[in-house]
Amino acid sequence: MRLALLTDLHANREALSACLAHAEQQKADQYAFTGDFVGYGADPAWVVDTVMQYVARGAVAVQGNHDYSVTRETRPQMHAEAREVIEWTRGQLNAEQMAFLRELPLTEERGNMLFVHASALDPIKWEYVTGIEEAERSLRATHCKMVFSGHVHKPSLFRRADDGRMGSHTPEPGARIVIRPQHQHLVIPGAVGQPRDGNCSACYALYDDVTRELTYFRVPYDHGAAARRVIASGLPIVFAMRLIEGI
């Protein structure tokens, strides 16, 4: 199976379309969406509908913190721009789309694979896995050999060896990484809809469980058009600038 791994879509129609087209060219057999389908971008309804269509065909989908927030009462500590986007997003989604987001699981297991938006240790806390310590906590929380996460908008890869030693790897786009079956791996593909590593190209990854190879991709897309749609929707301009600058 060639599994396409997409996370942090953030209502970015242009980026998601480009990544799905690229994954099809790579002959992906199945898809996994690890959360944050809404927030920041101008097309939440289209993105949620697209994920729903893939789920109906067997894809994995788990809930992200933005999906959680948009279907529940807004937290008072949330900063003003985030509240504005959440409230706007609620007005863009119909009852079916809201129910889909609300009912998504926090985690899903398939074989030796675990799918979660943030840390597997306590998914509802939405911990950012940005280093070795957080990655080790996440991996120790599950028996699964492969953990696929999101939340962090930069591509990264962590390994916990069979003797417990931890390691990390900065993936190069297009390079095939051999996955050793005796180790645990935590895979963060980077964001489809809002990359934050200074590169505005969309991110996703592909895992082949037969050859045991993992490949990260950067997919150029019309980020200018996506940014203009954010502005035209009346959303805070900072979210448009992030798409242009990749930060």
Rank of each mutant, 00 (worst) to 15 (best):
M1D: 10
R2E: 07
R2Y: 06
L9P: 01
R13E: 11
L16T: 02
L16C: 07
S17L: 13
A18M: 06
C19V: 01
C19W: 04
A21S: 12
A21G: 11
E24W: 07
E24K: 11
E24Q: 13
Q25A: 15
K27Y: 11
D29K: 10
Q30C: 12
Y31G: 00
T34W: 02
G35K: 00
F37H: 10
V38T: 07
V38Q: 05
G41M: 03
A42P: 01
D43N: 15
A45S: 15
D49W: 14
D49F: 10
T50W: 14
T50K: 12
Q53A: 12
G58V: 05
Q63M: 15
D67R: 06
E73A: 12
T74R: 09
A82L: 12
V85C: 11
E87F: 10
L93R: 02
A95L: 13
E96K: 15
Q97V: 05
A99H: 15
L101V: 00
E103C: 07
L104S: 03
P105N: 08
G111W: 08
N112W: 09
F115Y: 07
S119I: 03
L121A: 15
P123T: 04
I124C: 14
E127Q: 15
V129A: 02
E133P: 03
E136K: 11
S138I: 01
L139C: 02
L139H: 08
T142V: 14
C144F: 12
C144L: 06
K145P: 13
M146F: 07
V147M: 06
G150K: 13
P155V: 15
S156Q: 12
L157E: 05
R159A: 01
R159V: 10
R160Q: 12
D162C: 15
D162M: 14
G167F: 05
P171L: 01
P171Q: 04
P171G: 03
E172T: 08
A175Q: 14
P181H: 03
Q182M: 15
H183F: 11
Q184R: 13
V187E: 02
I188T: 09
G190E: 06
G190C: 00
A191S: 09
A191G: 03
A191L: 05
Q194R: 13
R196F: 05
N199H: 14
N199T: 10
A202T: 10
C203D: 10
Y204M: 11
A205F: 07
A205G: 01
D208I: 13
L214R: 01
F217H: 09
F217T: 00
R218I: 06
V219A: 05
V219G: 00
P220D: 06
Y221C: 13
D222S: 02
D222L: 09
D222F: 10
H223S: 08
G224Y: 13
A226Q: 02
R229A: 13
S233G: 11
G234E: 10
G234I: 00
L235G: 00
P236H: 03
V238T: 12
M241G: 10
M241L: 13
M241I: 14
G246M: 09
